[in-house]
Simulated scan of single mutants.
Amino acid sequence: MAALLVAGPVAALAAPESGDLTLAAVNDDFAAALPVGALPYENVQDLSAATAEEGEPTSCFGSTRTVWYSYTPTTTGMVTAGTGPDYPGIAVYTGSSLDSLTEVFCRPLYGYAPVTFEARAGTTYLFRTGADFAEQVTFRLDVAPDPEVDFSAPGYEPSEFDTVSFWPSVHDPAGLGIASYRWEFGDGTTSDEQFPRHRFAADGDYTVRLTAWTVDGRSASAGRPVVVRTHDVSIDRLSVPSTARVGQTVGVGVDLRNTRYAENVEVRLYRSGPFGYEQVGVGTQPVPVKAAGRSATFSFDYTVTADDRTAGKITFRAVAAVLQNRDALPADNELLSTPVRVS
């Protein structure tokens, strides 16, 4: 018994018994084009016994194995046709007979990209698809999908001093391409650049949104939160005595200014030596937010050595670091003292 091909949204293939003949696809000829109903539509046909009928156009691809479909939309809109496997050719026509066809669109063999075009309401479109080396072909027709839109946001909390770069990840599955971009940064500003760079004027929680349009007007959007926090401490003053003597323990005070957020801060104290600065102390403590003009003090003790007397003076260097966050302006986290004369 020969295999039977069933027309419909999905055509099922009964496996032929050994020695049986395979029937040609039910839509092997132009006149037998399978009508496409509601979208999305998918149909499988066996190409192993299909043939190209006499007078069939070749358009951008020729094949000895082809099948036909017809589609008459009730509304005007963009549609996308494709095949599985994706290497068979697809040609789209209008017309009522083989000798009166007008080509609308054509994808060659191994063209891979989907066939996307505007289907006008009430117009009948004929689809020819096939490939000599395909045993089966799955034909698909659907409304053209919206573009796929995403983008990368910074993986850290930027500060109001940072210029942030945004990178889109946008794809048009219908294959026509992206025409334009629109960025909304959540602070009232926008950009039409593909790869914008933006600086937020103040700390806050912002939703950045990207909208992309295809060349035929389809669009989609994606949004991501961006948290802007400006962490910044600075060393205002390094207090040391003007003179000291060998064996004397002197006090060194490091005054830190912090007007933004409560921070855990580490301060390292160094003293000058013949081979550069050597660390002589380290301290860690919470630094609360204080009004402008007020500071938090880190206190250190240092005992003057004979090497200091040989040098004749000591210069102290303090370096502060915010522990749990990124300091927005690290350049003001370091300060040198006035020289301390040693006798």
Rank of each mutant, 00 (worst) to 15 (best):
A2F: 10
L5K: 14
V6I: 14
A7T: 14
A15I: 13
A15F: 15
E17R: 11
G19Y: 12
A25G: 09
A25F: 06
F30G: 06
A32H: 05
A33L: 04
P35Q: 12
V36H: 06
E42L: 12
V44K: 11
V44Y: 03
S48G: 01
G55W: 12
E56V: 12
P57N: 05
F61Q: 00
F61A: 13
G62F: 07
G62L: 03
G62M: 01
Y71N: 02
T74W: 00
T76A: 07
G77P: 02
G77K: 10
T80D: 05
A81L: 10
G82C: 06
D86F: 13
Y87W: 13
G89S: 01
I90M: 07
Y93C: 06
Y110C: 09
G111M: 06
A113V: 10
P114V: 11
V115A: 12
E118T: 13
A119L: 07
R120V: 15
L126W: 11
T129W: 01
A131G: 08
F133Y: 13
A134N: 14
Q136G: 12
R140W: 14
L141E: 02
D142N: 11
P147S: 07
F151Y: 10
S152L: 15
A153F: 05
Y156D: 04
E157L: 07
E160Y: 09
D162I: 02
S169P: 05
V170N: 05
P173H: 02
G175T: 04
L176H: 07
S180A: 15
Y181C: 04
T189D: 13
F195N: 06
H198V: 03
D203L: 02
D203P: 09
Y206N: 07
T207F: 15
T207D: 14
T214P: 04
V215H: 09
V215F: 14
V215R: 13
D216N: 11
R218C: 10
A220F: 05
V226F: 07
R229L: 14
D232I: 02
S234H: 14
D236Q: 09
R237S: 14
L238Q: 02
L238C: 12
P241V: 12
A244Q: 10
Q248K: 08
V250D: 06
V250Q: 05
V250A: 12
V252I: 10
V252K: 00
V254S: 03
A262T: 06
A262K: 08
N264F: 11
V265W: 03
Y270P: 03
Y270M: 03
R271W: 00
S272G: 00
Y277Q: 05
E278N: 15
Q279I: 01
V282N: 11
T284Y: 03
V287E: 06
A292D: 15
G293D: 01
G293N: 00
R294N: 12
F298L: 00
F300A: 00
V304L: 06
V304F: 10
V304D: 00
V304K: 01
A311I: 01
A311V: 01
K313F: 13
T315P: 02
F316C: 01
R317E: 08
V319M: 07
A320T: 05
A320M: 05
V322W: 08
Q324N: 15
R326P: 08
A331W: 13
N333W: 04
E334G: 13
L336Y: 09
S337V: 04
P339V: 08
